[in-house]
């Protein structure tokens, strides 16, 4: 564990998902945020309430199906997802899955496509279609976010509604250290993108609760099918995430070997380092 206070501070002032709005109750969800025990509940008037150590009230926002909170004083609002206000989309609360890994490793795995044929076999990828074609990854200075665009991959079953294989186009976006938004080819509406997010609640540096959420154009598929498809995908990743060494995300370039297929991960690690977003990271090889 790092006890570097500067790095802890940079991430302390960010917003994190801590529960589903639809599951708020009076008893409350006993959970944790970056090592501090917290309770997520609603009060007598139905207002969401997040309580930290010694009963201190923490900031609360309700957005994208989830309750968000922070241990510090967030300097800006939760990142915008304009598609969340677009009429005609269905919003899918996928629910929580706990993973014994660094919250940053969980996000990095979400940004990766090269593992599809081996981990999501015959769903998001299949041999021999393993090649990762060139794409663009950058830290966009105007919005200070990581973006990857023109990411293309052959997928046997890209979504619950997909029938047969298609080459899917992706865009990835990292607007906050433990959150990522994926824009993906939307078969029923070729001019729009489906939105699939990964919101990660850091419980500790090596433990996280992962809250996937989606905003889709899909009027056909039953809600439960949509939830199960995404849970299936994430549970295929979970056994990978729990078996990476070290558990913390190494930011020392000597620790792991990226290739051209990992441009998004390289940009993500660089962005984390630049902002001192190192809760869950390992700075020097140990």
């Amino acid at each position: 564990m790092t006890d570097d206070t500067a790095s802890a501070q940079a991430m302390t002032d960010e917003w994190y998902p801590v529960g589903l709005i639809s599951q708020l109750d009076k008893t409350g969800r006993q959970t944790a945020l970056m090592g501090e025990p917290i309770v997520v509940a609603h009060d007598a008037d139905g207002q969401a309430l997040v309580t930290g150590h010694n009963g201190r009230r923490l900031p609360v926002k309700l957005r994208y199906g989830h309750v968000w909170s922070s241990l510090g004083t967030p300097k800006k609002d939760i990142f915008a997802i304009p598609e969340a206000d677009q009429p005609g989309r269905r919003f899918v609360d996928v629910g929580v899955v706990r993973v014994r890994c660094s919250p940053l490793r969980a996000v990095e795995n979400f940004l990766d496509i090269a593992h599809f044929p081996f981990v999501h076999t015959d769903v998001l990828g299949a041999e021999p279609h393993t090649e990762v074609l060139n794409y663009t990854a950058e830290i966009r200075p105007d919005v200070d976010e990581v973006w990857a665009t023109e990411v293309k991959f052959y997928q046997p079953q890209a979504s619950k509604s997909a029938s047969g294989g298609i080459t899917t186009e992706y865009m990835y976006r990292v607007p906050a250290p433990t959150c990522s938004v994926l824009y993906k080819t939307c078969p029923p509406r070729p001019t729009e993108w489906d939105v699939i997010t990964l919101f990660v609640q850091p419980l500790a540096e090596d433990l996280c609760d992962v809250w996937p959420w989606m905003a889709l154009f899909d009027d056909e598929t039953a809600m439960t099918d949509l939830i199960h498809f995404q849970q299936m995908i994430f549970l295929q990743d979970r056994s990978i995430l729990e078996n990476q060494v070290p558990r913390l995300l190494p930011l020392d370039p000597g620790m792991e070997i990226p290739t051209r297929a990992d441009l998004t991960s390289i940009a993500y690690r660089r962005w984390l380092k630049r902002h001192n977003y190192t809760y869950g990271a390992q700075l020097v090889a140990r």
Binding site: F118, E127, N243, P246
Partner: peptide, 25 residues
């Protein structure tokens, strides 16, 4: 440990005369 992304190689698979990582092959 696969030096690419740190995945455990004993979770991998063997084809022919090579050991492959389950994460990215």
């Amino acid at each position: 440990r696969c030096p690419h992304r740190g995945m455990s190689l004993s979770h991998g698979f063997v084809r022919g005369e090579a050991l492959s990582c389950i994460y990215h092959g």
